[in-house]
């Protein structure tokens, strides 16, 4: 299956940040930078990997944009695209919220998994999409990640994660929390089989995702300025009754505190990932 057909239903979204701007400018044509407020055409954003041409702020990417930015064209084979939650707790208003995000993104849930080639090197991929319920982890996200790790283990592929998440999906209660255990267990199975797991933390990677699979790979990278942490900033400020600096819980903060290996600009990511995949190529492979 090719990436185009998977995302055929995808609608334009999130292009204009404010309601007011939405009325004044035709949708999808331009986008304002959330950091420096400069406005650029959608094409300029696209050509620059959704990094602000003026200030370098790394904007959120959809799963589709992320995959396209990394893989060789037409090499993506998606896994388990059709798994969908059945609202196991009968949680109020959950189904409407899901439906809205499904229409908005063309995805069934917040993660896309599959395999592809990066500069000719095969790899499994896990890409979380923050436009779907803040990429929170419920049973579908947990299951797809677990299956991707199992498939990568069986097919002896390395695996690259692009994490983004608001944490556990509240509306699936304890079923969500247990996905932390399930995915971590799958990581260890993959790890014990000798698999190579690379994690690229993107904005934002927080809560139960930070406290499970996202923090236990072999290599951890993060995009500049990405919010990475366990507890929410507001809760910490309330607890310690102190205002936290803007640099708190950024990728650079995590690097300084020894929690990640490198901060990597989006424009350098493909090259870095290629080099790492190459360094872990199975012996005997040319």
């Amino acid at each position: 299956m090719q990436i185009k057909s998977i995302f055929a239903k995808k609608k334009k979204y999130a292009a204009i940040p404010t309601e007011k701007a939405k009325q004044e400018i035709p949708e999808g044509l331009v986008e304002k930078c959330h950091n420096c407020s400069k406005i650029f055409y959608e094409k300029e954003w696209k050509n620059n990997l959704h990094v602000c041409p003026a200030c370098g702020a790394h904007h959120k990417m959809t799963a589709q944009q992320r995959i396209n930015s990394i893989i060789d064209e037409h090499t993506f084979e998606e896994w388990d695209a059709d798994i969908e939650t059945n609202n196991p707790l009968d949680f109020p208003e959950y189904e409407q919220k899901l439906k809205k995000d499904q229409e908005k993104t063309g995805l069934k849930d917040a993660v896309v998994t599959g395999k592809a080639k990066v500069n000719g090197l095969p790899t499994a991929l896990v890409v979380m999409d923050p436009h779907f319920r803040m990429a929170s982890m419920g049973a579908v996200v947990g299951e797809k990640i677990t299956r991707a790790l199992e498939k990568a283990r069986e097919q002896e592929l390395p695996i690259i994660f692009f994490t983004a998440s608001g944490g556990a999906r509240m509306q699936e209660g304890m079923i969500s929390l247990m996905q932390m255990g399930k995915t971590s267990m799958a990581v260890e199975r993959f790890n014990r089989a000798g698999g190579c797991m690379i994690v690229v933390m993107t904005n934002p990677t927080t809560g139960g995702v930070t406290a499970s699979f996202a923090s236990i790979g072999d290599y951890h990278f993060a995009e500049p300025g990405a919010l990475i942490g366990f507890a929410g900033r507001r809760i910490i400020e309330q607890t310690i009754r102190e205002k936290l600096p803007d640099t708190f819980q950024t990728a650079e903060f995590q690097l300084e505190h020894g929690q990640i290996d490198r901060v990597v600009k989006r424009s350098d990511l493909k090259k870095l990932l290629t080099t790492i995949l190459d360094l872990h190529r199975p012996k005997g492979d040319k």
Partner: peptide, 25 residues
């Protein structure tokens, strides 16, 4: 888990994640 500055600086997420991974096996 404690939501605090030091806890974040010392890797609260990593500490819990590592426990999950290790306990699983």
């Amino acid at each position: 888990a404690h939501p605090g500055k030091g806890a974040e600086e010392r890797g609260q997420g990593e500490a819990i994640a590592r426990n999950l991974r290790e306990m699983s096996h």
